[in-house]
Design a protein around this nucleic acid. Structure first.
Lengths: 192, 192
DNA sequence: ACCACATGAGACATTGACGTCTCACAGTGG
DNA sequence: CCACTGTGAGACGTCAATGTCTCATGTGGT
C-alpha cells in the first residue's frame, strides 16, 4: 500500500512544485533551479527528484499550460452560440493561465529548431476553427486570417498578463480589454 | 587625421555589427557572443572591442531600437490628421524595426528589477498621447485606456514579427493585419 | 621603407548554473 | 524497536559562456 500513499504524495507535491515554479518563472523567466526549489519550499535535490532537469521542468510546465488551455477550451464551448460570445468565454476561462501562457510563449522562441509539442497545434487548430466559424457565420471579417487572429490572441494574452504584473492595467479589466480590442478594435463603433 | 578616419571606420563597423547582431538575436535570442561575432564577420576579440560585453551589446541594441522607434514616430507625424491614419502610418514606419522591438520586448522581462531606459517612457508617452488624441476627437472608444492600447500595439507588433518569421503569415500583410485588428477588431463592421 | 593601429586567432582564468553523489535526519509502518 | 523511505544539506565535478590577455599579421599613412 505504501506505493499508493507515496505515489499520491509525490503527485500532490509535484503539482505544487509545478504551480510555484510557474508562478516564479512567470515573473523571472531566468530563475535558477535553486530559486525554483526555494520558491516551492523544497531543496534542490528534491526538485531534481521530481524533474530530471530544467528542461524537464519546462516541458512539464508546457504540458501544464496545454492542459489548462484545453480545459479552458472545453469550458468555453467554442462551438456553441455566437462566435463572439465563444471568444469572450474563452478569454475569460483562459485568464488564470495567461501568465503561464506568456512565459511559454516567449520560451518557445528558444526551442526554435526543435519540434514543438503537438498539443499546441491541436489548440491552435481549435481556436482557429472558432475564428473560422465566426467568419463563416458572417460575424467576423474575412480579411484577417484565422491564423493571424489566433496568433494575435496569444500576443494579447501575453501583453495583458505582462501589463498586469507591471501594474499598468487593472487585473479586473483583463478580459474586457482583450476581448474588446480583439473583437471590436479601438475605433468607436457607430451606433447601429 | 587618422583619428577621424579610424573613428569613422569604427562607427561604420559598429553600426554594421549592431545591425547583424540585431538580425541574429532576433531569430535566436540566446546566441553566443561567438555567434554574434561570426554573424558580423568579425572575431570575438573585435566584438569585445566594440561592446564591453553582452550587457553593453544589449544596451546598444536597446538604444538602436529606441532610436528607430523615435525616427518612425517622427516620420509618422502622430499629431497630423485623423488619429487612425496616424496609427496606420506609425505601424507602417515601425514595421522594419518590429523584429528588433520583439526581441527587446521579451528581453525587458529579464531586467525586471533594474531601471529601464527612460527612452521607452518617452515613446510610450507619445504613442499613448496619440491614442488619447483619438479618444478626444471621438475617433477611438474611451473604454480602452491609452496605456492598454499602447501595450497592445507592442504585443501585436511582436506577435506579427514572430508570426512572420514562423511563416504563419505573409510579410506584405504585416501593416494591414496589425492596423486592422488594432483599430477595427475582428468583428465585421456593418456598412455605414 | 617604416611605423602605427586595428584585427584575428588563440590561450587562459573565472564565473555561474547544472547534474550527481553521499550522508545524516525524520516520519511512518510493521 | 527496527526498517524503510523521502528529504535536506552540502560537497563535489562538469560544462558552457564570458572576459581578459598576448602575439602575429596585414594594411594604410608618413
Amino acid at each position: 500500500m505504501s506505493h499508493v500513499v507515496y505515489g499520491c504524495l509525490m503527485a500532490v507535491d509535484r503539482d505544487h512544485v509545478l504551480r510555484s515554479a510557474a508562478a516564479l518563472l512567470t515573473r523571472k523567466s531566468t530563475a535558477t533551479m535553486d530559486e525554483v526549489a526555494k520558491a516551492a519550499g523544497i531543496s534542490r535535490a528534491t526538485l531534481h527528484r521530481h524533474f530530471a532537469g530544467r528542461d524537464a521542468l519546462v516541458r512539464a510546465l508546457e504540458a501544464l499550460g496545454i492542459a489548462e488551455c484545453e480545459a479552458a477550451l472545453e469550458r468555453a464551448r467554442p462551438d456553441d452560440g455566437p462566435a463572439s460570445e465563444a471568444v469572450r468565454r474563452l478569454v475569460r476561462e483562459i485568464e488564470p493561465a495567461a501568465a503561464l501562457l506568456a512565459f511559454l510563449y516567449t520560451e518557445n522562441q528558444l526551442f526554435e529548431g526543435e519540434e514543438q509539442n503537438e498539443g499546441w497545434a491541436r489548440i491552435d487548430d481549435r481556436i482557429a476553427a472558432l475564428f473560422r466559424r465566426g467568419q463563416a457565420s458572417g460575424e467576423f471579417r474575412i480579411d484577417l486570417t484565422p491564423a493571424w487572429l489566433t496568433e494575435a490572441l496569444y500576443g494579447l494574452l501575453a501583453s495583458g498578463a505582462w501589463a498586469i504584473t507591471e501594474g499598468r492595467v487593472a487585473r479586473k479589466d483583463f478580459t474586457h480589454m482583450i476581448v474588446e480590442l480583439l473583437l471590436g478594435g479601438a475605433l468607436r463603433r457607430e451606433e447601429p
